[in-house]
Design a protein around this nucleic acid. Structure first.
Lengths: 201, 201
DNA sequence: TGTACATCAGTGAACGCGCGTTCACTGATGTAC
DNA sequence: TGTACATCAGTGAACGCGCGTTCACTGATGTAC
């Protein structure tokens, strides 16, 4: 049952995207090759026509997920990004959410190639955040980068800690609410001292 | 080869502590029952004389690790805690480090019982941090709790993100250094506006 | 205190199962003429 | 354009392996008398 080259390429991409979601939901070890292929609408045997190994797909799926989380959050501005990111909706839907938050615990135990993919995803996310971060005043690029890196770690920690609590627990929600408010409050260098500046001026 | 009741109890505790370290190093799925028992100096068959299942041990080992991270950091003060926590030494030694940072990614996919154990560990850590947090001024208990919860998520995120980067990468170190400095700077409510107050006055 | 027997922590072979991976096969696609 | 053949994406059975768990067994401990 051979298939068009274009169809085969589309199938391959579909498998990567399916894997990207499933890995975020269940972790790398929680998704088998047969599971994955069935979820994508295929039988497991064809897997190795597309990928050298499960580890290879893990790297591709991670890269795909890391890139996707970027395109999902382009141009909304940093405070709104934090509102969307540090939310119950995001916490409760890891499959469609941030790959860093869903898989960085797993990534820490993976071989260097996959960690490099992760570091690359972090760098790209950082670059996107930097470009959207308006301090309302001149700020050296290094300072902006540090601020966004700090904010990202903060937000990732909030989601991950919240996800490790029982689904209906007050603590899980408290973590999100406390952290969201404080991350947003920390965004402009000194919000209370510096009244809102019209960015269109 | 039966063994003294006291010895059996000691062996059981030794298995839990060994598991606590190995799970932090390799994750719940990365440690088999046979691995674990061998590391503790036993054969695998005896495991079920002590524990009903691997899942039961996971909960006990997590509780043990979460309690341990508390006793390791009693009385050193919050800024010093951050210095020790958000460090390369901690990042590079997960087996002896914080159970939250090592396993909260795994915990998010575990059954409610284990998540409840995790939430309990977070609450206990919070209580310990609150008792050590000196704002230099009067602050409502709720505000102190929020500050410590926020700080904990921030520190956990920094370690986890750093661990997901390649071992020798500049980004891994940058994350730690940037976050450590900023977390510490954020500790007193307004460090720049409020010069050091002699706490002995 | 000494003796006989039950208990049970620890051993190591064995179990069923699911995993990642391989392979012979199918049949539509792609290609050479 | 039409024909003959090679290619190869996808199928599904099979592989070896390691996992969590079970079990008959051992022999020192604990207990009853």
């Amino acid at each position: 049952m051979r298939v068009t080259k274009a169809q085969a390429q589309a199938n391959r991409e579909h498998i990567v995207e399916t894997a990207s979601v499933l890995f975020r939901e269940r972790g790398f070890d929680g998704v088998g090759v047969a599971d994955l292929m069935a979820a994508a609408g295929f039988t497991h045997g064809g897997f190795y026509k597309h990928f050298g190994s499960k580890a290879d797909l893990m790297a591709e799926a991670a890269a795909n997920g890391l890139a996707q989380s970027l395109t999902n959050n382009v141009g909304i501005g940093v405070p709104e990004f934090v509102n969307v990111y540090v939310s119950r909706e995001h916490r409760d839907a890891p499959g469609g959410g941030c790959t860093m938050a869903a898989l960085c615990g797993d990534a820490a135990r993976q071989p260097p190639e996959l960690k490099a993919t992760f570091a690359n995803g972090i760098e790209n996310t950082l670059a996107a955040l930097e470009s959207q971060y308006d301090t309302g005043q001149e700020a050296p690029q290094q300072e902006v980068r540090a601020k966004m890196l700090d904010m990202l770690a903060h937000a990732v920690g909030a989601i991950m800690l919240s996800r490790s609590c029982p689904d209906d627990s007050a603590l899980a929600d408290e973590i999100l609410e406390v952290c969201r408010a404080r991350i947003i409050a920390s965004l402009p260098p000194a919000p209370a001292q510096q009244p809102a500046v019209d960015t269109e001026s």
